[in-house]
């Protein structure tokens, strides 16, 4: 019951944020590969008393099907929760807030720059592909022809990324990025009082659930 409730809550939040459609798609994509293997393994190999049907040497039991369904729902619950966070949180604001709470600016930079670097890297890769296609590299032909193009595409991407990282780190250093000590940040992400209350409330609920579970008040679903 638990995971379904979580999925319902997450989807309701996603609907409010206007990302419900995308959220379901992304979470399904994340869940699918694991879900398939879980279903195959648990449906046919889990011991049980009620045999539903048989394929070759494998018996599918009611217990196995139940376990698979439970696992898939849990996985989906976890991935919807993570995806909701990713889709509704501005990475820059998140990183800034982490720094405000004492995380090192270097770590915060690495986190933010990684997010920001993806589009730049994609653009660079596109230029490199265009340059090599101009030299007769066949990226539209047979698999063999395309395999031949692996090095000419990947080497410049890697090398130019390295050069760029080098140049960028110099450019950052001359702006005193390596200086130890705290910075006075110019912007704090908006944090209204009800958001703070909700955050603390959720933390308390989480702690209570953990205690309850350890004390055996809430039964574990095994």
């Amino acid at each position: 019951m638990g995971p379904l409730a979580i999925i319902a809550i997450v989807l309701a939040c996603a609907a409010v944020a206007g990302v419900a459609g995308r959220l379901v798609k992304v979470s399904a994509l994340f869940t699918l590969p694991i879900a398939i293997s879980v279903v195959l393994v648990s449906v046919f190999t889990r011991a049980g008393t009620t045999v539903l049907f048989t394929i070759g040497p494998f018996d599918a039991t009611l217990e196995g099907v139940e376990f698979a369904a439970q696992t898939v729902v849990r996985l989906f619950a976890i991935s919807t929760a993570i995806s909701l966070f990713g889709m509704t949180t501005d990475p820059r604001a998140f990183v800034l807030d982490l720094e405000r709470r004492g995380l090192s600016p270097r770590f915060a930079f690495v986190a933010a720059a990684t997010v920001e670097a993806v589009p730049a890297m994609a653009a660079r890769a596109a230029t490199i592909a265009a340059a090599q296609r101009s030299r007769g590299l066949d990226t539209e032909g047979s698999v063999l022809a395309r395999a031949r193009g692996f090095l000419p595409l990947i080497v410049p991407v890697v090398l130019s990324s390295l050069t760029e990282v080098e140049e960028r780190s110099l450019a950052l250093e001359v702006r005193a990025f390596g200086r130890p000590g705290r910075r006075h940040l110019l912007w704090a992400p908006g944090d209204r009082s009800w958001e703070r209350i909700l955050r603390w409330g959720l933390a308390v609920v989480l702690a209570l659930l953990v205690v309850a579970r350890v004390a055996g008040i809430v039964p574990g679903t095994a």
Partner: peptide, 9 residues
């Protein structure tokens, strides 16, 4: 292309 480093491998 303009930038040689986008093609040398």
């Amino acid at each position: 292309f303009q930038d040689p480093d986008r093609q040398i491998f």
